[in-house]
């Protein structure tokens, strides 16, 4: 990015992701940026958004963002807490999730994701945490939103490992395989938004952030990125969005840096 702006790329990503959520939507949230985006939406335009964390906490309204997927804050503010077999079988596989958020280390042009390993599986260069809830979120959520910073290292022509499926090889591969959900409808990066092209299902540039050039986005992509017929410009964060988000992060930082008293 060429000039200094009063917000960070992370803040722009979070705001862009939050705006895509709607009031009342049922959202399966991971930790990190998706959790910040979902809670920002709850504090702005979507007060009745239903947040589901994979720890089985459903309908949570945390005051600070959780560090882990199962912080006490989530349990204390949940409408109901269910077991892990139940959250995956009845609520996710049961088709009750409108939006599932996913992150990864690598993504290919069809939105398939790798969060398992960089390099060869049996002799990994970098061992990543692995699948967690992602493969079934990718399969069963009615749609997924992928959040991933854009660089040639993360937006790759070929994944080292497929942890979660997007559109497979495109051209209807996903629906032929019988995946119930519609797959990645949008990818939110630090430069703009990618969306699948109707027939090929290849991800193309649909929107850019203000003052980010299309060429810059192409250079940050490890395959020849194509653009949609028209590339929109995403409005920068409003003062209100920034204020609420920073407040949330500041509360969270204070809460997480305070050592808990030892249970003695």
């Amino acid at each position: 990015m060429s000039e200094t702006r009063p917000w960070t790329p992370d803040e722009m990503m979070t705001v862009a992701a939050a705006r895509l959520l709607w009031d009342g939507c049922v959202c399966f949230v991971g930790i990190g940026l998706p959790s910040a985006a979902a809670n920002l939406a709850r504090h702005t335009h979507a007060p009745d958004i239903v947040l589901v964390y994979e720890s089985g906490t459903i309908g949570v309204r945390p005051d600070v963002l959780p560090l882990s997927i199962g912080d006490g804050e989530l349990a204390e503010t949940a409408t109901v807490i269910v077991s892990l077999p139940e959250v995956f079988a009845y609520w996710l596989q049961g088709g009750r999730i409108d939006v599932g958020f996913l992150g990864a280390a690598q993504m290919d042009r069809f939105g398939n994701l790798n969060s398992t390993v960089i390099g060869d599986y049996s002799r990994p260069r970098t061992r990543l945490p692995g699948a967690g809830g992602a493969p079934e979120i990718a399969t069963h959520a009615k749609r997924t939103f992928v959040v991933l910073k854009q660089s040639p290292r993360s937006f790759v022509p070929k994944l080292d490992f497929v942890t979660s499926a997007g559109f497979f090889e495109g051209h209807g591969g996903r629906s032929r395989a019988g995946a119930p959900g519609a797959g990645p409808r949008v990818v939110i990066t630090d430069l703009g938004l990618l969306r699948p092209e109707p027939d090929s299902e290849e991800l193309v540039l649909a929107a850019r952030y203000e003052n980010v050039e299309v060429d810059e986005i192409r250079r940050a992509t490890g395959w020849p990125l194509r653009t949609a017929d028209s590339v929109d410009v995403v409005a920068p964060p409003t003062d209100e969005e920034l204020h609420i988000l920073r407040d949330l992060h500041e509360r969270t930082r204070r809460a997480h840096s305070r050592p808990a008293p030892l249970p003695v």
């Binding site: 892990l84 077999p85 995956f88 079988a89 596989q93 398939n112 398992t116 599986y121 699948a131 493969p135 079934e136 399969t139 069963h140 490992f161 497929v162 942890t163 979660s164 499926a165 497979f168 996903r174 395989a177 019988g178 995946a179 119930p180």
Partner: peptide, 24 residues
Amino acid sequence: AAAYTAGAANLPFGMLRGSLGTDL
């Protein structure tokens, strides 16, 4: 989760609609 559930229920295996399109 399905594997533990099967263990608790004395079934030989657990079943799910899972790992679709993955390398797992």
